[in-house]
Design a protein around this nucleic acid. Sequence first.
DNA 1: ATAGGGTTAG
Length: 805
Amino acid sequence: MLIDMYMKCCSLSKAHQTFCQLPVWDVVAWTTMIAGYAEHGLGQLAIKFYDLMQSNGIRPNSVTFVCILKACGSIGAIQHIRKIQTEVEAEGLLQGELVGNTLIDMYATCGRPYLARQIFDKLPKRDVVSWNSLIKGYTESEQFAEVLKCFEQMKTEGLCPSSRTFVSALKACAAIGHLDKGEEICNEVERQGQLTKNPFIGCALIAMYMKCGALAKAQKVFDKVADRDVVMWTALIKGYVDQGHDNKALEIFEHMKVDNVPPNEVTFILIVKACANVRGLDRGSEIHAEIERQGLFQKDLVIGNSLVDMYGKCGDLAIAQEVFDRLSDRDIVSWNALIGGFIEHGFTRDALMCYEHMKLEGVSPDAFTFVYCLKACGTMQDVDKGAEVHLEIECEGLLTANIIGNALVDMYAKCGLLSKAEKVFDKLLVRDVISWTALITGYTELGDGENALQCFDKMHEHGIIPNAVTLLCCLKACTSIGSFDKGAKIHSEIERQGLLQTDLAVGNALIDMYAKCGSLDLAQQVFDRLTVCDAVSWNTLIAGYTEHGDVEDALLCFERMQSKGVYPNIVTFLCILKACSSIGAAQRGTRIHAEIERRGLLSNDLIGNTVVNMYAKCGSVNKAMQVFNKLPIRDVVSWTALMAGFTEIGQSEEVFYIFDRMLGEGIKPNPVTFVVVLTACTRKGLFMKCHSFFEAMSASYGVPPNLEHHSCVIDLLSRRGEVEMAVSMVMKMPFAPSSMLWHTVLGACRNTGSVQFGKQAFNNATQFHYNCSIPHMYPSNIYALQNEYSIDETRNFQIKTVYSN
DNA sequence: ATAGGGTTAG
């Protein structure tokens, strides 16, 4: 009795002392010691005492067996349990339920359901406890189908499941998503009136319905319970958070407070997570204040970590860092939460600095850390740092982790090192759809659509099913190389998977693919079949019609888009302005311009420049000038657009004047500016001016002349009949001449009757085109060649504005 | 016996 008291009071040494002073050591004394040690998790000591007892010739009784089995179970000493099992059987004690059940329970605890089953089958009589212990074994080793089998079988044996049984069965239903069975058990529970009696069953029911996605049913169970404790409220909140209904979780949290149930640590962790998921910084800060008021911040590291995560996800990295610094204790999760926050909001440098800092503090990075770091290296295209991290991963032996391997492939692919990416890819233990997609994306981003699609074929050969991300990326590859056939094949896979209705990005990419491959009909058909569409869908269609010269349909789309209530964005206006300028539709352009002013979008530099360009293209230089003067910022594109307008209407002097003004404002000309200026010279036959601009562009402005610039000068020489100079310039320039350029020169030779230079030019032209394998360039004389093509005298110079959706 | 933090391809 005294030993037992000391043991229970945690005075192990006093208990031991008392035991030593006993006059005789009977089985009860030994068993009390063993029970005490087992109780305090000192399994090894319990085993030692058990052995001592036996060497002292004392035979264990049922209670001794139960105690020593519990001790062995708590430390996973499976061999000891097996030894004790033979002793139990030798003593014939398996007949009594107590020892048998304990044996089953301990095998279950040690994750040996088959050993538990062996004992179970040997029992002469099985009660609910035996079944529960057996079920526990199956639950521990995740054999959920067995759990449900046991649940049914025990009932056919006439036994009534206890709350423990119900909880295990419900857990099994949740794990395998067996909603029907779960519902059946729910009805059984309610029939027995257990729901109101036992809060554990209620929690298990809520968790089961939530995991099966039956949110309303989970809520119904919750509503039926009269007095709900914190845990049940928390179980409901967890369900909503896990299912992605974070706002609903936050709502429940409010109800809970109205109901006067104070949240505990777990509730706070879940609620902070909900705030992080919805990026609700304000709400998150309020919860944070509440956590601080209750003094839970210092008490619980998990809460601290969840706050760092929340601030990081919400983009308030300063506060995230502050909270992180205030943590009294930090673990790898704290560091990862901060690093993850930095990465998500583009602070890649800070993320990598944090990573170095962490290592200096002696914290070892784990898989999560490495994945974050690789993402940072990929984003920055810093392959040196990436290779460094790669090496560390190899040193840690983490290369076998699939996610890390995929992140490595992605990093090398993002850095444009596809051979390196392929090398890592080949070494992966498992190549899943993500590994393949990372590689395909790498090739696509590099503009190498052929290799991307080849990769896609290989993936198919390996039996990997593409998903929405893969197919989206492959569509982009098809678009970039204009591969209609392949694109159509991918389209059929998209239909097979029903992605057109569920993934708008895929739908939009499909529209773009068909539009860029020239099939506006199919693009429109896909568009019409979308369940929802956004501004990107409309923009893609508008750009498609514009590219194919169908400006009427482009403008019609613009009208329809607005009547359907889709708000046009910057890209919409850029597309529609481009449509207007392509056909010189000044009136329509003016209406669009008014719309843009009304929305205050002229201040956007892309829009402003494109409006100037639109008026310039339509020949309305006054309007172009008016808008130009209104622009808040005038960059080289704005100035060039204005100059192009004056070039268009032949006012070259004005072009040169604007060029000087632009230089005066400290703006540097770009290659397009020189095309415009040189064209202005060509139009007026100003050879000296043209020559001096051409010489100055690389010497004074650092803009090396490209094919277009050469063409301007050669064009001018040809017009002036300077065929010798024109021909020699064509042959000297470091670019392959376009056929258009040859025609200009040959036309000049014909007009001036310069047979000698004409022949020279022709020989070069045919040789060049022969090299390019264009068979129809084999006419017998220069006149025949001349007649095959008409020379477009009015060359259209365009301001190239790069924009995308 | 019910409840707890962070990852990969667009």
